[in-house]
Design a protein around this nucleic acid. Sequence first.
RNA 1: GGCCGCAUGGCUCAGUUGGUUAGAGCGUUCGAUUCACAUUCGAGAGGUCCUAGGUUCGAAUCCUAGUGCGGCCACCA
Length: 713
Amino acid sequence: MGRSQKLWTLYHNVGNLSSKRKCVRMDNMDSKYDHKLYEQKINEAWAVAGVNTPSDQPAAGRLKPGYFSLVLPPPNANDPLHVGHAMYTIEDILVRFHRMRGDDTLWLPGADHAGIETQFVFEKKLQKAGKSRFQFDRDTLYQMVWDYVQENKQVARQQLERLGFSLDWSRFKYTLDSDVVARVLQTFQHLHREKLVYRDMQLVNYCTKCGTAFSDLEVKHKTARTPLYYIKYGPFVLATTRPETKFGDTAVAVHPDDERYARYIGQTITVQGVNGPFQVKVIADEYVEREFGTGVVKITPYHDHNDFAVWQRHKDELPSPIQVIDFQGKMTTTAGPYAGMSVAAAREAIVAKMQEMGLIDHIDDKYENQLSCCYRCGRTLEPLPKAQFFIKTKPLAAPIIEKLDAGEITVYGTGYDKILRNWLTNLRDWNISRQIVWGIRQPVWYKVDENSEIQVSFLLDKKDKKADIDQVLSKEIADGRFLITGLLKDILPVYDLKLVKKGLQSVDAPIDCAFVIELEKTDLDGYIQETDTFDTWFSSAQWPFVTLMTNKPGDFERFYPTSVLETGYDILPFWVMRMLMMGQFETGKLPFSRVYLHGLVRDSKGQKMSKSKGNVINPLEVADKYGADALRFALVVRSSAGQDKSIGEQDFKAARNLTNKLWNAARFSQMLTDEQKDSAGSQKVNEEFSRQIKQIVTDVSEAFGKLQTGAGG
RNA sequence: GGCCGCAUGGCUCAGUUGGUUAGAGCGUUCGAUUCACAUUCGAGAGGUCCUAGGUUCGAAUCCUAGUGCGGCCACCA
């Protein structure tokens, strides 16, 4: 028997047929299966049969020594479910099977605050109302987002129930529940104690319009035609797309094996700039492509990711980097007469000046460049230097790699064990800082009187406004309030710290700023708290143990490690890998040793679903039209680990026809007379049928534990 | 550039350790039908399992090479 037939049987018998036949009154049955009419009844029947009961209310004596636990990948608290979520069916099948077998079974539901995504959605809403997030201090904004999410939080639960998932709702957890937050912060402190957290200056992808940095994953790449300027640079001619960053050059680089320039390596050259001559050192780095441009690159560490990497490798022989562009997208004072100009205007002016000075060799205006753009507003992102918190990943990844090699971790999904290993071995340190409000605020506090170089910005009511001070920027905001930006040393003589904290927008501490970690939410006297929040994945990474530790007493001991983690392969690195690392670090045990990865759900033509293509399937609509069973069956049948799944109307119809077929089979059996039922032949058939089904279901489900890891293993 | 995957009837895909005539749904063709069910029933057509080698008594399945498609990561200033 092929696997598809087995799944077919598995599905219908674990979740459907047997309970239906036992528990739903069959008299006066409709001639057709009306899912709208019967789904509720069937759910009730399942509850009676003990298939839907929460983990704490199993029939007496049902608990066996074995347990089976599974955490639901928490959907975004603010979003309605999409069809991908209906893949939870796989988890539901496993859970129901183990419950029916008598294992102590838990399927733990939750919701994720989904930091950037949710804040983005909320800001769009603000925008429609003609407002912007910069008009609100962070406490107010946070509360507004909180309320907004609260309104929608019930939707996901209702939908999950509608699709028939037998989750234990008495154990529901939200990533922003206070006990969850407290536990997450504890881990941060633990990491810090183990010296796995550090603060470092790194380049971030910053949108000067939206006022936040984005992770690499959120950057949208766009191909654009940008002029490539060949500029005279001391003894060289070099190509650059960004002449305006020239003020921030700290070196010029060539390839170590490039004979053309070998004699310059290590020398300091004098370069004519628009604001007069300056000196830079010539360094050799393999990053330089000999064939590109002239094979010479100017190194501007604070405004280009690659340049920053080069600078880090040559730190010892080079001066400190210089910031030429600020977080508002304006040129800094370093640019002399160009200070305060926007990047675009400055580029134009500087190119004109360079042409006048004869510094431009020629311009290639056919050059095609990959621009990094903001996925929200489309503006070009500026790589800008910012002090952020990082987690050292090597020590966290090492034990996981070991266990992977030892075969202690099984990944179901062709090839994904290799991909996981590849990620783990090439992992960079993890930037966990985000400049958004919607998230868990970092419990980092700076002592005010020892750190007067901290820059803050805060909102102030007009009545509290004092006369303008030098070095402090004040800007009037729409509703008559002022945004004050400046260094603490300039601000505190005029404004009380409490006032600053009350309207606080952002805190920007220098790289060498001393800090303490304080987990209590109290307002520390004489300290000011970091305004950055954690990357959403930092809390998600702790989900298995955090949800169990903050749940009913004894749950952690009873259900950890979890039995399997089931999710889509697209979040293997962001979520699964990080859960393995954080779980192992914090509890000393892997949070799970089996990972089942399902594929992406695509449309009937195999295309990715997207709103713009208009091929999105709404699972709730399908459930309404064809029934939840039909939806679930259509998704799960013929699907295999790690493979994408194409699905369309026809598949739902076919699945619906099957539910109808079963319905009528049951109805047919009802029509048999007692004599017919009792006849020896009929009984034999029934017994044999029942025996075979149990065998198949058990075999298939248990085989899950024995399967190989796809083609690779 | 690095890593990974996929290739089976018109379409979307199953095919666990190699073992008899390679399966499903949809589509398609022919036929049936006042009934448990038209959300039906019966029958059929349709595949050199990408190509070329190899291992084997035996290959869709294992190995090698090639071709085509896709994914992830890193990306030339």
